[in-house]
Simulated scan of single mutants.
Amino acid sequence: MRLILLGPPGAGKGTQAKRLAERHQVPHLSTGDILRSEVKAASELGRQVDSKMRAGELVDDDTISSVVDRRLAQPDAANGFILDGYPRTIRQANALEGVLGSQSLTAVVELMIDEEELFARIEARAREAGSAGVRADDNSGTLRKRLAAFIKETQPLSAFYKHRGLLFKIDGSASVEEIATTIDDHLTDIRASQPSAARKGE
């Protein structure tokens, strides 16, 4: 299982990625979580990306691709992964293809949701977490910047993966359970259409 989850910030990619990782026994690779852990540890990488993340800017392609490349090389990702937050640009997508080589992606799932719903989710998440528990990038001002970056840099990935026959779009405003069921049904259809030899590498 080699899956990418696409969608704007706040669309629910993390929630679905964690569920899928547990169900298919592969790691959930969230670039946001990886980078935030680096910031918390005050590593060299963390210091480099901290200000960009707080401002809602995207980390440069070379840096984030290097981070993902190192993570995919770890033993637990040998049998698959769920990528959440990467790739975010066409350049990153091409870099990922180079890393994977002959190992093709299983699918690319895009969660579709409008801006009004996204802002409502971010505000609700901030209220539930309380001021002490809110992430530095969880606020409406930063979300607007992140959405602008998403529209400019990430949305073109839809056409990129559609051209490769991998893209599957889902209504991200549906319930968590409904989205999960739709993804499961799609993955089941993919497995059913593959020869048994190809499924062994999932």
Rank of each mutant, 00 (worst) to 15 (best):
S196R: 01
E177H: 07
E153L: 03
K145C: 03
S193Y: 00
L166V: 04
K162F: 14
I183K: 14
Q155H: 10
D184N: 09
E153P: 04
I183A: 14
I151T: 12
K162E: 15
A180R: 09
D185L: 14
G141M: 08
E178P: 10
R135G: 05
S173C: 08
T182L: 11
H186P: 05
R135I: 04
A149C: 02
P156L: 04
A148R: 07
A136D: 12
H186A: 02
A197N: 01
G141Q: 05
L187C: 09
L166D: 02
S196V: 07
E153G: 09
T154M: 06
F160Y: 12
D184Q: 13
H163M: 09
R135W: 02
T181W: 15
A132M: 13
E178S: 11
A136Q: 06
T154N: 11
L166M: 05
D189V: 08
I151E: 12
I179S: 08
A148P: 02
A148N: 10
R135T: 06
Y161R: 06
I179Q: 12
R135E: 03
A149Q: 02
I151S: 08
D138C: 00
A136W: 03
S173D: 15
S131A: 14
A136C: 04
S175E: 12
S131W: 06
I170F: 09
D138A: 07
A136F: 09
I179R: 10
P195H: 00
D189I: 09
F150P: 01
I179G: 14
S173F: 12
L143N: 01
R191D: 01
I170A: 06
A174C: 15
A174T: 15
A136T: 09
S173R: 13
T188K: 09
D184K: 07
K162C: 15
I170C: 10
T154V: 06
K145S: 04
V176W: 14
T188R: 08
L143V: 04
A136K: 05
H186M: 05
T182F: 07
R144F: 11
T142M: 02
T181P: 11
L187N: 09
E153H: 07
A159V: 10
S173N: 14
A174Y: 10
S175G: 11
R164E: 06
I179H: 06
I190Q: 03
Y161T: 03
T142H: 01
T188Q: 13
A136P: 08
L187K: 14
P156T: 00
S158G: 11
N139Y: 00
V134R: 06
D185V: 12
I183T: 13
A180P: 10
S158P: 07
L157G: 04
L147M: 07
S196E: 00
